[in-house]
Design a binder for these strands. Structure first.
Lengths: 120, 120
DNA sequence: CGGAATCCTCAACGATACTG
DNA sequence: CAGTATCGTTGAGGATTCCG
């Protein structure tokens, strides 16, 4: 990245900044401990059931998985599909907004990866 | 974004995933409350003094500003330049890694912005 | 199977005061 | 000017148990 590109980006940020910072807003939505893992394993295998997802993630508790799913649903990053049967059958699906988020994370993935490699 | 692009990204993530997830790694570095604001105001005006930066951010305490600055320095996102004089004169400067991070946030900025607009 | 309810712990953060 | 030191608070997250 050139200095000039950076300055253009700064200018763009400045001119397009709404009252509340969109980055902080995004971080609030995806910043809690299990949000990224949930989105991640749903990305790898969309439409997983609750317990399937729980096994994929591994160490998450019911409390936190439920809480994360509810919040992500409320923010429109995923959808909950229930069949309403007994026993229950519920699957979770990324929305376009959710997929866009994952896609958006590509650059941060690269940034973190190169920093990891630099630090060891 | 098309479904095909998304799937290519998923494939890429999968094939390039190191033992520890780079996104979680990044979030750990910049996820605490004041990291983004500190980087942000340093981006808007690089080379600010400690108290200048404190006034820019506004509501941050000494404790948290110092802690954030130390950690960001340790992770190589900014540099601390001290003149070693009395009274002290210290300025803070983004490194290339730090500038790259800010630049990288562009997509997340857009994602959050469009979600904000959608939600009200 | 897919959760809900409760209780508990600890670390992040804040408030305040002080200093070379 | 550029921080430290100390203490108090709060809420995110964990552990456990129970339920239709």
């Amino acid at each position: 990245m050139k200095q000039q590109e950076f300055e253009q980006k700064v200018k763009y940020f400045h001119e397009n900044m709404p009252p509340q910072c969109p980055i902080l807003y995004s971080m609030k939505i995806i910043g809690s401990k299990w949000k990224i893992p949930v989105m991640w394993y749903l990305m790898l295998n969309d439409g997983q059931h609750y317990n399937e997802l729980k096994r994929s993630i591994g160490s998450i508790t019911n409390t936190m998985l439920t809480k994360s799913l509810r919040e992500l649903e409320e923010d429109g990053l995923l959808e909950r599909h229930s069949k309403g049967t007994v026993p229950p059958s519920v699957t979770y699906h990324l929305t376009d907004t959710g997929k866009n988020l994952i896609y958006t994370m590509g650059d941060l993935f690269e940034w973190g990866k190169s920093l990891m490699e630099k630090q060891q």
